[in-house]
Design a protein around this nucleic acid. Sequence first.
DNA 1: ATTTTCATTGAAATAGTATTCAATAAAATT
DNA 2: AATTTTATTGAATACTATTTCAATGAAAAT
Lengths: 195, 195
Amino acid sequence: MSIRHEQKEQRRALILQSALDLFIRKGYGETKVADIAKAADMSMGLLFHYFDSKEKLYEELIRIGCERLKMDFNFMNESPLAIFTAAAEDLFDMIRTNPSAAKMFVLMENAQHLDSLSEDLKEMLTEADKLIKKSISLIEKGQLLGEIKQGNAEALAVAFWCSIQGIAQYIALHPETPCPNSMWVISILENREVE
Amino acid sequence: MSIRHEQKEQRRALILQSALDLFIRKGYGETKVADIAKAADMSMGLLFHYFDSKEKLYEELIRIGCERLKMDFNFMNESPLAIFTAAAEDLFDMIRTNPSAAKMFVLMENAQHLDSLSEDLKEMLTEADKLIKKSISLIEKGQLLGEIKQGNAEALAVAFWCSIQGIAQYIALHPETPCPNSMWVISILENREVE
DNA sequence: ATTTTCATTGAAATAGTATTCAATAAAATT
DNA sequence: AATTTTATTGAATACTATTTCAATGAAAAT
């Protein structure tokens, strides 16, 4: 059980990789099974030997994405701005060093708006929105401390997370581009008034 | 020639509006003509009375988007940072006041990665990338003047424009959310070192 | 009032895609 | 070496989505 077993894993991985790239470039619906098979250099028939359906393949990708991208930022002892700084650094490191992680990031975002998705998967995916909601109170705390600039806390949270999202998306689609510095998005939050 | 003529315009507008919303939420491929017809409360047959095909409908939206969103930032006399500030203000005003403009913004971004699109439309759409390229020299100028922080100019341009893109996308999909302040994304570029 | 035009529909035709399957070749097991 | 298992393909099938069309009714023109 060696040659076959190894090849099986490799092929599965190749399919997943090709599909991920196509899904984030063209979207789920415009990506045809034929496209994926072609990108992975195999017949459509064989692809269905590895995955029951296009949807199952997609769901597998989301499951992998959930694994990799799960991150809580619950360092209760640190200051709010330090928590955001650490989170941004982690994400940008991931985006910079691991191209497929950046792609995953985009996939997860896109998947949220897809109707035909099993309920348990949808639940996993509402993370992003929760991230914004969870940030609000942290931002308010930082504003009291004078670390974070004044303004509507929800709008600040949206600005911060969506900037990262937008940048991740660009880097995922244009991997050769120099990756921005994580501190640059921190300046969205940072209060630079002199007290 | 009044009742019919008015209704015709209204229906066309309603189709375009419904389609735009669906396209940015679900993507082109996952949006079925049946969905659009249902959202616009008419039969599929009638939809095809107004538009020759799903693709033509999509192209019409892009054409409208190009009209509305065309903007050069060629104020050669102003300082680089002032130019970026003005551009960000314009865009955020648009996003804040006109929900369908925000949606257009997202549509245009998504459309770039769509294969099946006539060449002339594709050409109109490469704007966004050009925007980043055009910004680079302006950023370098600002860095020399000390207005804009140090760092790779292309990466700064990506950070700036993609942040706006990410925020616009979120607001388009969640119109009830409070809109971030345009100055917040300017702080991505702004140099706050004391000279 | 009659005719013409056109908005509208639902169903039928067409086209496009996902999925299955029977046949084959190659690897593993006996 | 013979047998079983499984990877692989290309064609057949089932399914889904788009597009066309003939029929109907309502507005406009005569």
